[in-house]
Structures are given as structure tokens and as C-alpha cells.
Design a protein around this nucleic acid. Sequence first.
DNA 1: TATAAAAGTTAGATTAATCTAACAATTTTT
DNA 2: AAAAATTGTTAGATTAATCTAACTTTTATA
Lengths: 230, 230
Amino acid sequence: MLSFTEENYLKALVELTVFDADSEEVGVNRLATCLDVKPATVSDMVRKLRDKSLVNYEKYGKVSLTSEGRLKGMMVIRRHRLWETFLSSKLGFSWDEVHELAEELEHIHSEKLINRLDEFLDFPEFDPHGDAIPNKKGEILLPFRKTLSEIEIGKRHRISAVRDQTEVLQYMDRIELKINQDVTIEHREAFDGLTTLTYGNRTSVVSPKLTENIFVVCSECGKAKCTCTK
Amino acid sequence: MLSFTEENYLKALVELTVFDADSEEVGVNRLATCLDVKPATVSDMVRKLRDKSLVNYEKYGKVSLTSEGRLKGMMVIRRHRLWETFLSSKLGFSWDEVHELAEELEHIHSEKLINRLDEFLDFPEFDPHGDAIPNKKGEILLPFRKTLSEIEIGKRHRISAVRDQTEVLQYMDRIELKINQDVTIEHREAFDGLTTLTYGNRTSVVSPKLTENIFVVCSECGKAKCTCTK
DNA sequence: TATAAAAGTTAGATTAATCTAACAATTTTT
DNA sequence: AAAAATTGTTAGATTAATCTAACTTTTATA
């Protein structure tokens, strides 16, 4: 049975090498920053995980997940996202409150519990942040996604998901921008990417830091990769 | 913030000095047996808890809870019993499966979460084992329940409640045993707990699986914890 | 390519929770 | 009340996860 700590390492590795996907491997320093520990600590820990066949690693080399490690990491993320969904849809927590609580709940191991929860929630596909929930087998269908920073000016899009970061969520709350809301880009400044958006009866100017973290689909067809002419 | 371990010590102390209530204090050995650790470990730990003002203790003396320690311990039990209720009534776990899972869930600290859960479950008074759930303030309003499996032979009792499980109710229907009916135990087999009861104009032999799920009060005084002589 | 910077490792220390083994205090029994 | 039994404590060791500080390897740059 894995410890909380080991599970957190695997989760971070999935996030860095599967979701962020610019590389399937990652350095010790990068991992240390992510987990908010010192590189020395990571050095020790990845050796331990290697001895358990959960990561590939050798001295001075990069770290990557074995298929077993990947599965274990995926299951932590599955649990996290299912609990988030529960907290939001059943207990009425707002989407910026659920993350922290799920950080604890994700370490409750019972597979039976998590599958029952999945059923109770009626097999949700996405968590309250719009991220896909891995299935029983740890598989995740990474849908093609497009961010607010990429879309065409003037074409109406709907917010489908937000990257799972508390600051983003809180900022969106502050400007009253919500999941499933329609938005249109009025203007995008070439110089610094500053973007003017309208939604509901509001207009806001926001930075790329925000737009890069918000996923959208076409309001017409509901797809990120749409072919609507308009 | 208390560690899992510290919380488990407080929980055990509540069980030994509040619920079991033959004494408000307990020895190091007894506590060690309960927690399945060595006395040496308990010795160290209670000194630590004393330094945090959670227990009263001095060298070679007995251990008892301070009011702060009692409250903290009660809250662990509140969380445990609410999670048990959730697992049973929402996720369909049977009452003998819930305990182990609740042992993990009880250590999720958020007060907001547990109060929301309480509300979601519609403020249950008892967990699936029939044990009372402490309220927000750590108080237990209806502390006492007794099941048919515990009562004295020959003394008349009245059925006050039944654990919320359809099978139990269906079985009771079949043998014509009803809520508010008077019953008397004629005989209880020491070997396997098989019990002979009389009620109305019937006599039935039933197993502990049934008697453990039926709550009773004294027919004379109407209380579970009665002091009637006969 | 030599050197500086960045990245990674090792050794030794710390903290929490546990153990064993030896010892000390208290309680019970004769 | 002395001996025996029980109960509790202390000292020293262990394991997991972390740290700091010193060191080494790899990578980038002048």
C-alpha cells in the first residue's frame, strides 16, 4: 500500500508527464518545485519509487512513470476528481473550495468506495473544473481542448473547463466569469495579449495568464475543434 | 492541527472514559491494548498530549481527558459516525462494511465539510450501528440504545426502533414482530446466540443477525438504561 | 574547450511514531 | 509486611519523510 507521500509523487508525475505532455520525463528539480520539497528529498524518493517499479530513473537521469506507476497515479487523480464532483454536486461546495478538500479525500484507498461513489454520482465525465475523470481502468479521454487565448475574435464560445488552480478559480469568481457561460473576444492586444471579453452583461480586460487557463468550446456546435463557418 | 495518531488516542479515550463509563480515567496498559501499541508508546504519547492540554496525566498516574481533549475526541467520533451513515444510506454499504472505511474518513478535518455532510444526510441521530452521533458542539443528546441481543432474560422490553435496513423489516414482518410490541427473551444459546422470544401470542427462535438490529426499551420505565428492579 | 551555472547527489541531522529490553513503581497476594 | 505480580517508565534503536550543507555531474556559455 502506498503512503500519502508516494501517492502525491505519482500524482505530480502524471500531471507533469501525461497531462502537461511536453515531455514524458521530468527532472528532479522540476519535480521538487512542483511538490514544494527540496531536490535532495526527491532524489531519495525517486530511488525508493524506482525500487518499487513505479518510476524509471537512474542516477543523474530523468524520471518517468512505469505503466504501473502511471496507473496508480491515475487512480489518485480519479479519486480526487470524483470527490470534487461529490463535494460540488451533492454538498453544494463552490468550485474553488473543492480542490483542497479533495487533496485529503483522494488518499482514501478503497476501490469499492470509489466505484460506489462514481455510481452514486451517475458516472460523471468531468469534475467541477471541467477536467476529465479517469475511468476504473485509469484511462482518460483527453478531449481536444482550446483555450480562450487561442480563439477567433468575435466568435461566440462557451467556457467548458478551467485549469485546476485555486488562483484562477478565485480570480474568475471575482470577475463573475463562470463555467458554461458564453463569452466573446472583443479585442486582443498583439503587444501583450491583453484581451477584452464580453459575457453576460459584463466586459472585462484580462491577461493571457487567465485566458491560457480557460478552456472553451464553440457555442454553436459544442466542440473545441469546430468547423462552424460563422 | 492534530495528527491521525493523536486523534486516535483521543477517540480511544472517549470510548474508554465517556462511553464505557465505568471510570473517567484509564491506565496506560489498558489504553495500549485498545490502540494495539505497546505501553511504552502510550507513555510517551500521553506526555505529549498532556503538554498540549488534551489529557490530564502524571507519571505513574491514570489518564483522563481535559474538556478540550474530550471535545476533540468527540468530533472524531462525530465524523466517524456521519461518514458511516453516508456510506450506508447513500452508497449502499452494509453496516458491517462501513467501520473500516470510516476509520480513514474520520480524519478529514474540515468542519464545513462535516456540517454539510450532516445536513445532506438530514441530521441523522444514529449511525448504522445504532450509535448516537454527537452534534456540532460534541454533545450526545440521546446517548443510549440497547438491542434485543443485550437484554436480560425474562425481563419484558418494548421494541422502540429497528435499524434502517429493508431486510430486517421484511424479516420482522414475516414473523409478525412489530415496533412498539412487548417482547421477552425466553432463552439465549451461549454457543451461537440463537434466541427464543415470546411476543403477542407467538414464540420465535431468531439469530443474532436479527436481535442485533432491533432496539428496545424497558416496558416499565420506557428507557434503554433502566433501573427497574424487575 | 575551459569554465561557470545549473542540476543532482550524498551525508548527517531532525521529527513523529513506533519498537524492545531493562528497569522502577505500585498493587496484590500470601 | 515481604514477595510476587502487575503496571508503567526510560533509554536506545528504527522507519519515513524531510531538511541543510557540502560535494559531484551535467549542461550551457564565453
